[in-house]
């Protein structure tokens, strides 16, 4: 058998562009997994999370980032997402460790990340995001899930004016268009 090499295709092929001083770029990652907390095992999961990622398990709508740059989002009462940008031991070490407490579902191909960054980011988001973006309500490090331009979006605030938006990969083209239009419309 000839050795076949299946090349990875990122949803937006590494897109990057600046519109109205807003930098829009595909946020690429190697792995994205969800962690479900089995019924009545919150305590065990907290310990395991700390042990596996070196940070405490976040509360709902909060996040952590560990020293390897791995992000953890609590998006539901019993559900977390862990996003590994590029750390090499994630699949071999971190995932098996997490598996001892959580139910793990690989969602690497399911979501597309877009990072938006710039002074006018809030103005741009006001065109598609129904959430209150005031830092009193939506602090740095918060992560929320909502609907933008008909699509389900997980929005993570990195700094005052920098966000990562995760949307389903199959509709990522439509979502990118929404972001572009919102940026050029302000």
């Amino acid at each position: 058998m000839a050795k076949l090499d299946l090349k990875i295709k990122k949803p937006l092929d590494g897109y990057s562009k600046v519109i109205n001083q807003i930098k829009i770029a595909e946020y690429q990652f190697d792995n994205l997994i969800s962690l479900a907390i089995p019924l009545k095992t919150e305590r065990k999961c907290k310990l395991n999370f700390k042990k596996s990622l070196g940070e405490p398990m976040p509360n709902i709508e909060k996040s952590i980032i560990n020293k390897s740059g791995i992000l953890g989002f609590r998006i539901g009462l019993d559900l977390l997402l862990v996003c590994n940008p590029s750390h090499s031991s994630f699949v071999k070490k971190t995932v098996p460790s997490l598996k001892q407490a959580f139910y793990i579902t690989d969602q690497t191909g399911g979501w597309c990340g877009v990072r938006i960054d710039g002074d006018r980011v809030i103005e741009m988001l006001e065109r598609i995001c129904p959430l209150n973006l005031s830092q009193k309500i939506f602090a740095i490090g918060d992560v929320k899930r909502t609907i933008m331009d008909h699509l389900n979006v997980i929005i993570f605030r990195e700094t005052e004016k920098k966000f990562i938006l995760f949307s389903p990969s199959s509709s990522s083209g439509s979502f990118l268009k929404s972001i572009e239009i919102s940026s050029s419309n302000i």
């Binding site: 019924l39 559900l79 690989d106 969602q107 979501w111 199959s170």
Partner: peptide, 12 residues
């Protein structure tokens, strides 16, 4: 019941 549901339509 201990059951968790994740849509993976877009993941695979």
């Amino acid at each position: 019941l201990d059951v968790h549901l994740i849509s993976t339509t877009d993941s695979w």
